[in-house]
């Protein structure tokens, strides 16, 4: 376990350092996330009183599209000068590479969401700071990061990769989106943990299942 954690953290440190230098991922996705909300606000005619109904749907549409944007970039920097190849010829297990990349994406997306959430809360008029909503966002984003990292590693090598990622990603994460919207609706409505029903466990099952499957198949994806 300790042998796994160290390289994971080294990879995360590297990606955060690169992000601090260029800032091209977090900032651009943030701006995109704001745009999505503005567009949805007009597209869905978000009048006062309807906000609580519409907010969770808008929230997760924005998060899902932002996730696609962020995940599309996850392996781009590792492709430029062969950084991924450098990782693959290092004595680091493929599990560690997968978990490192997934953890980085999780951190970036959570940061973006943490910045967007208060803005959304003001714009869409709902109370953001509830334990249940934060937990829902964390579990949903974990699912996005795990599945997204696997598909991003595949998509980055295919032709027209920007399109390939959503084509692979959206059908598979659909349960997460459904469950996250339902759980968020209840959370925004002031329900407690128990009131969220089976939606959180559903996301939990999804996360756990793909945390097992994805690292395993990732090793094959990385093979030349």
């Amino acid at each position: 376990m300790k042998g796994l954690l160290r390289p994971v953290l080294v990879i995360v440190w590297k990606d955060i350092l690169l992000e601090l230098r260029s800032r091209d991922l977090v900032v651009s996705v943030l701006v995109f996330g704001l745009l999505v909300v503005v567009v949805f606000n007009f597209a869905l005619n978000n009048a006062p009183g309807r906000a609580e109904q519409l907010a969770p749907g808008i929230l997760w549409s924005a998060f899902a599209f932002s996730a696609i944007l962020a995940m599309n970039r996850a392996f781009v920097r590792d492709q430029e000068q062969g950084g991924l190849e450098g990782l693959l010829i290092s004595p680091v297990s493929r599990d560690a590479i997968f978990l490192g990349k997934a953890l980085t994406s999780l951190i970036f997306m959570l940061l973006i969401e943490a910045a967007l959430l208060p803005v959304y809360a003001v714009m869409l008029d709902f109370s953001a700071l509830t334990f249940t909503l934060v937990l829902t966002i964390f579990l949903g984003t974990l699912g996005f990061a795990v599945v997204g990292t696997l598909f991003s590693a595949m998509a980055v090598q295919t032709r027209s990769r920007e399109i390939m990622l959503p084509v692979l990603f959206f059908p598979v994460v659909l349960p997460v989106i459904i469950a996250a919207v339902e759980a968020s609706t209840r959370a925004v409505g002031g329900e407690t943990f128990v009131g969220l029903g089976r939606w959180l466990p559903l996301i939990g099952v999804f996360d756990a299942l793909f945390l097992v499957i994805c690292p395993w198949v990732f090793a094959y994806v990385m093979e030349e």
């Binding site: 590297k14 690169l18 430029e80 000068q81 062969g82 950084g83 190849e85 450098g86």
Partner: peptide, 10 residues
């Protein structure tokens, strides 16, 4: 190899 395997921004 042909590529440096280094990160340009580090």
């Amino acid at each position: 190899g042909h590529r440096s395997l280094l990160y340009d921004d580090m």
